[in-house]
C-alpha cells in the first residue's frame, strides 16, 4: 500500500465523528431538564435507575440528532456552520448515520422501558419521531415557524423524566413542557438576529428572512410576554413554592425588559452597537431556563428539611 493510496482513505471516521453525530452540545440541555423532571417528581427512583434513565433520554436525543444530520446532509454542505459536520465533510456515510440513529433510538426506548416504565419509553419514542420526522423531514423546510415546531421536541425531556419517576403525565410536567416550549422561539430568534446565517442559500425558511427582522422582533416580544403566565403558573403547582416564584418573577421581568429593548430597536440602531441588545437577550435566555429549573430542584431539596413548596412556609396545604 502506497502513501498515495492511504491518503485517499483518510476520510475514514474516528470514534469522535460518531459522537459528533449525536450533537453532544444539545444533549446538555436535554440532560439538565430531564434530570430536573426526575428530581422534582414525587417519587423516588433508585439513583442507578435515574442514571440509566438520564442516559437513555440523552442517547434518544442523540439518535434524533443523527437522524437529523442524515436527512439534512444536502443542506448542511451548503452552510458554513454545518459544512464540517461528519456527513458533509465525507467522514461518515449518510447510510451509517441513518443506521446509527435508528439503532440508538431502539436501544434508548427499550432500555428506558426496562429501566422505568412504558409511558416514559413511549414519550421518548414520540420525541424522537417528532424531531426526526415531523420537524426535520416534514416541516423544517416548509414553514418559517420551524423554530416553534422544533421546540416541541426540546420540551419533552422534563416530561419524560417526570413520567419515568411517577408513571404519569400531570399538570406539573405539562407546565414544565410549556415553559421550554414558550422559551424556545425567543431564544433562537434573538440568536438569528445577530448571527449572519446562510439558511437562505440552503432554502430553509427562517423568520428573519421570510418575514424580515421587524417581524422577528415582534415575535420575540410576543413569546416573551406569553411565557410569563406559563412560568408563574408552574409556581402554583405542587413542585413550585415561594423560592421558585421569586426566581420566576425576577427572571421573567429581566428577560421581558431585554426583549422589549430588542423590540424597540430597528436595524440601524442594532448595527450601530453591533447587536448588543440582541446578544444580551440571548444570554439572558440561557440563564432563563437554567434558573427556572434550578429553582424547581432547589424547592425539592428544601423539601427534605420541610421548607419546600408553599406549605413549607405556612401557605395552604
Amino acid at each position: 500500500m502506497t502513501h498515495a493510496s492511504l491518503d485517499t482513505e483518510v476520510r475514514e471516521a474516528g470514534f469522535g465523528d460518531y459522537v459528533e453525530l449525536l450533537k453532544p452540545r444539545v444533549m446538555s440541555l436535554v440532560v439538565f431538564t430531564a434530570l430536573a423532571g426526575l428530581l422534582v417528581a414525587p417519587a423516588n427512583l433508585h439513583p442507578f435507575e435515574m442514571l440509566v434513565a438520564i442516559l437513555c433520554i440523552a442517547v434518544g436525543a442523540g439518535a434524533s440528532g443523527a437522524l437529523n444530520m442524515w436527512w439534512d446532509a444536502d443542506i448542511d454542505v451548503l452552510m458554513k456552520r454545518t459544512r464540517n459536520r461528519p456527513i458533509p465533510a465525507g467522514r461518515i456515510e449518510p447510510g451509517e448515520a441513518l443506521a446509527l440513529g435508528v439503532a440508538l433510538s431502539g436501544f434508548a426506548v427499550v432500555m428506558l422501558w426496562l429501566d422505568t416504565n412504558l409511558l416514559a419509553a413511549g414519550l421518548l419514542a414520540l420525541t424522537i419521531f417528532y424531531y426526526a420526522v415531523i420537524y426535520t423531514i416534514w416541516l423544517k423546510r416548509v414553514t418559517p415557524q420551524n423554530i416553534v415546531i422544533g421546540g416541541v421536541a426540546g420540551s419533552f425531556p422534563p416530561m419524560i423524566g417526570w413520567a419515568a419517576a411517577t408513571g404519569t403525565v400531570s399538570i406539573e410536567s405539562i407546565l414544565m413542557f410549556a415553559v421550554i416550549f414558550m422559551w424556545t422561539p425567543a431564544h433562537f430568534w434573538a440568536l438569528a438576529l445577530f448571527v449572519k446565517s446562510d439558511y437562505g442559500d440552503a432554502k430553509v425558511p427562517m423568520l428573519t428572512e421570510t418575514h424580515g427582522r421587524r417581524s422577528t422582533r415582534n415575535h420575540i416580544l410576543a413569546y416573551a410576554v406569553l411565557q410569563v403566565p406559563v412560568a408563574v403558573a408552574l409556581g402554583f403547582t405542587s413542585i413550585g413554592g415561594p423560592l421558585y416564584m421569586a426566581v420566576a418573577v425576577a427572571v421573567n421581568l429581566w428577560f421581558l425588559a431585554a426583549c422589549i429593548r430588542v423590540w424597540r430597536r430597528d436595524e440601524a440602531q442594532a448595527e450601530a452597537d453591533r447587536y448588543a441588545a440582541e446578544k444580551r437577550a440571548f444570554v439572558i435566555s440561557l440563564y432563563y431556563l437554567f434558573l427556572h429549573f434550578s429553582a424547581l430542584i432547589a424547592e425539592r431539596v428544601l423539601g427534605i428539611w420541610g421548607w419546600g413548596g408553599w406549605s413549607g412556609w405556612g401557605f395552604g396545604g
Binding site: L6, V10, E12, A13, G14, F15, G16, Y18, V19
Partner: peptide, 15 residues
C-alpha cells in the same frame, strides 16, 4: 503508523 490507524484504534476502543 498512519493517521488512519489511529482513527481505527479510537473507533475500536470507543466501541
Amino acid at each position: 503508523e498512519h493517521e488512519l490507524h489511529a482513527r481505527r484504534r479510537s473507533r475500536n476502543l470507543g466501541m
